[in-house]
Structures are given as C-alpha cells and as structure tokens.
Write a protein that binds this DNA or RNA. Structure first.
Lengths: 248, 248
DNA sequence: TTCTAGCATGAACAGTGTTCAGCAGACAAG
DNA sequence: CTTGTCTGCTGAACACTGTTCATGCTAGAA
C-alpha cells in the first residue's frame, strides 16, 4: 500500500491529475463503452464525449485509438459480427439456410439499440467481414442460381434485413417510453385512422387496414424473406437472368 | 422610387436593419432553399444556418414556419412526390407497372444529392402521400395476390428502392470529386482486390469478382426489381401466404 | 539515476440545433 | 392623423457537437 492510495491533499488537488487508469485504453474497451452509451442514450444522443465520460477519460484520448466517430461506428459494426457463423452449404436446403441467415441478421441488428441506423449504408467488405460474405455466397451458389443473381442476392437480402430493422427500430424508439396501455390505445388510433379513411377515395387502404398494422413484425419479416427467396428460386435452372417476365 | 431604394448612409449602417424581404417567408420558399443547400453541400454539411443564409434571413426566422430540422426534412421528402403519378391498375400488366414504379422511385431519389439519406426511415403515411400508397396498393391487388402479400409488397419494394439508392449515393459521394481517369484506376483496384484474394479461402468471392463491381447500376437495379416481382408473382393463385417452401 | 517515447490531458476552435426577449412595420380602430 | 395591437423577423444566447494541439505526466530502457 503505497501513499498513492491516499487521497491527494486538498492544496494540490488542482496540480495532481487522477491516477492513470490501471486498465490501459484500447480499441476494444472504447467499443465496449460505445455500446454502453448507445444502449443508454440512443443514436441521436450518442457522442464522443459520452463515450469518454463512460470510460472516465478525456475526449481527446479516444482520438489516439480511433480516427473519428465514423471509424468508431465501423468498429462497432464489425463487432456485431463476432461469433456469427454460417453453415456449410447444403444444396438441398439452401432456402432454409438463407432464411436462417436472415433471422440471425435481424437478431444481430436488434441486439443493440439503434444498431440498424449504424449498419445502414455499411458495405461488409472489410477484411474482418469478407469471410462471412464468402460463406453466404457459397450457399447462394450451391443452389444453382446464376452467379449474377447470386451476387445480387447478397445485396438484396442485406438491404431487406437492414431496411426492415431500421423501420422496426424507428417504431420501437417512438414508443420507447410508453406503457402497454397507452401503446394499445395508440395502436387502435392508427388502425382507426386507416379504417376510417373515406372509402370512396381510399378503397384499398381501407380494405387492407388490418394487414397494415395488425400483423406481428416476426411474421411480416418472415413473409418478406419468403418473397425474396421465391424470387431467387425462380432463377434456378433457366437461362441466366434477363429481365424476362415472371413465374410459372 | 422611395428613399428606401437608396443605400443606407454609412453612419447608421449598424442601426438600420436590412429592409424586410419583399417576398414573405413561406414553407415553400424554405423548402426550395433547403434543396439548394442540400444539392450544394450534401447531407452532412446541411444546416439550418446554411438554409437561412441562402434566404438572406436569420436562422430563428425559419423556426416560425418550421418546427425543427426533422420537420423540414419531412417537408422536403413530401415535396419529392409532387407530380408523381401512378397509372390505373391494369391486371394484365401489373408486373411492368410495378417495375415502372420502381424506376421512377429511383429517379426521384436521384433527383437531389443525398436525398436517399433523408428518405430512409420515412413512412409514407402522411396525408399528402396516402393517395400514392392507395394507387400502388390498387396495382398490387389487381394482380390477384393475397392482401397480406400486397401489404408486404409495398414495404418490400420501398425498402429495396431506398436501400439501393442509399448505397448508390454513398458510392457517388465517395467518388464525387474524382475525374474519370482516377475513378477508372480506383475501380480496377477494387476489382483487383477481389480477384486477388487467396483462392483457397475465398473461392466464391474470386469467382464472382466480375459481377461484384462490373455490372452497371441500372442493370443491377433492374435485376433486383425482377427478383422481387417474381417472388410476388409466385403468390398469385395459391392459398394465402404461409411461409411454405418455394417456387415451381 | 537519467533519458526518451508514447499516451492522456485540458483548452480551444469552429461549428451545430433551438429558444427567447424585443423590435420594425403593416394594418385596423379611433 | 394618431394610436395600438399583432405578426414575423432579429440578434444574442445556451448547451451542445466533432476534432485538434501544445503541454506535461509516467513507465520503461539505458
């Protein structure tokens, strides 16, 4: 027990600095803290200052390890893929494999508040993420679809997952601090809004009001994935993809 | 010609204020200016101060007409739908109608710099936009697909269009101030990066390198829409959509 | 013990969105 | 022609933001 354990005498409180962190600052620790802040504050209130505060460190210290806010977001984005694994391709079963990939993608994007906002527009071509893309492509190609379609499929699926989760998270944020009861009333308001539109001008909206709000997000997500997978499947065993007309 | 047309004498330049704008400030004019600023500065440098500057007006004046930045973005978003028209549903031709809708959606999102970033996450349920959704739904329903699928189709298609345009615009921004030559080299660099990955660990990426970069955006967009439309078509004339297995 | 290299510091800069007391000018009432 | 209210704009301020930089502390090497 050296004297450094004692509190600094009041007269030189200003001269002394706080003891240097026992744990050195690293990118890993910064990313950890960043997630803590994101979960607590959300995307809009996320700031470098909050992250520094969380670590008990000056803001400028962060910039020694991280070039800027964007790079920090990219590190966070990469981090969310830790432990994500894709199975070996099984040509008989590619559709289910793709659907499972989509489900896990959604789960990943829901694992932190507003994560979808950070993910949006990130292309997963960093060295850390390439193996994931490789394995996804393996599954697509094993299905027998043309390479051009497979290349598009990856984009298409990722766009869908991210877009869906973004929209989902916006609703979640909007109703974040609402108890079950007020949320129930709010939902009825929305349903009512659609149902009570003038039926002469909005016949289709009125007819579809139940489906616009009522279906659970899980089911909607699954349906979307199914539509995509069916579209992809329609390209198997044909001439490669010109924009010809559709199905059976 | 009253004396107000003369320049103010130098000694009371500080006392006098600039003559009140002959043209009164309106939401319309603010939105116009906002687009000018957006096109010049891009999303990241867009600010209320810049908009005010563009109009020759104090920042706080904007807040008389517009609640906040988000509302201004929403007004801009709505504005982009001005003059967008959808045809009457033609059941024989719904697929082409949908594709045309998608093309126009992309054109709309490309009509202003970074517009895709503003659009993302906006739900088109404002009173101004409901008629558009109504007509889109009319086309979907005329195809004979189950209502539940039609409801999903709108979301799915919008998500695709916006996601595609967002990604597209990020590349456009990244290479905004690059001449044709350096862009050519850059593109070859990227192609090379994929082509020269270790082929034992990345066989699929290497095989698909040409398709990842080479295809034009127009063609990629068209292909994506085609996949979606085929997926939707596969739901026509069957029992309504449980997530059963796929195509023909 | 001395030196050095690297890391964290606080202060500063140039911006941001948003609010608010107060004033200029137009228009209506007397 | 005066008076007064009302509206819409102003300027200044607040509380933040991301990012940079000279300064100086501290740990490990010589």
């Amino acid at each position: 027990m050296s004297e450094t354990d004692l509190p600094a005498p009041p007269w030189d409180r200003n001269r002394r600095r706080p003891a240097p962190a026992k744990v050195p600052l690293t990118r890993e620790r910064i990313v950890d803290a960043a997630f803590t802040v994101l979960d607590r504050e959300g995307y809009d209130r996320f700031s470098m200052r909050q992250v520094a505060l969380e670590l008990g460190v000056a803001v400028s210290a962060l910039y020694v390890h991280v070039a800027n806010k964007d790079e920090l977001f990219e590190l966070m984005y990469n981090r969310t893929f830790d432990g994500a694994e894709l199975p070996d391709p099984d040509p008989e079963n590619w559709q289910e494999q793709i659907k499972e990939f989509a489900r896990r993608g959604r789960a990943r994007l829901r694992s932190h508040r507003d994560l979808a906002r950070i993910s949006m527009g990130h292309v997963p071509f960093s060295p850390e993420l390439l193996p994931h893309v490789e394995r996804l492509m393996a599954i697509f190609r094993s299905s027998g679809m043309p390479d051009l379609v497979a290349a598009m499929a990856g984009d298409l699926l990722s766009t869908y997952i991210e877009g869906f989760c973004l929209e989902e998270s916006m609703w979640l944020e909007r109703y974040r601090d609402m108890d079950e009861a007020t949320w129930e009333t709010k939902r009825n308001e929305i349903m009512g809004y659609f149902a009570e539109l003038p039926p002469d001008r909005f016949p289709n909206m009125v007819a579809m009001a139940p489906y616009m709000v009522d279906e659970s997000n899980d089911y909607r997500f699954e349906l979307g994935v199914d539509i995509l997978v069916r579209g992809l499947a329609s390209y198997i065993g044909r001439a490669s993809g010109s924009a010809g007309s559709a199905a059976p």
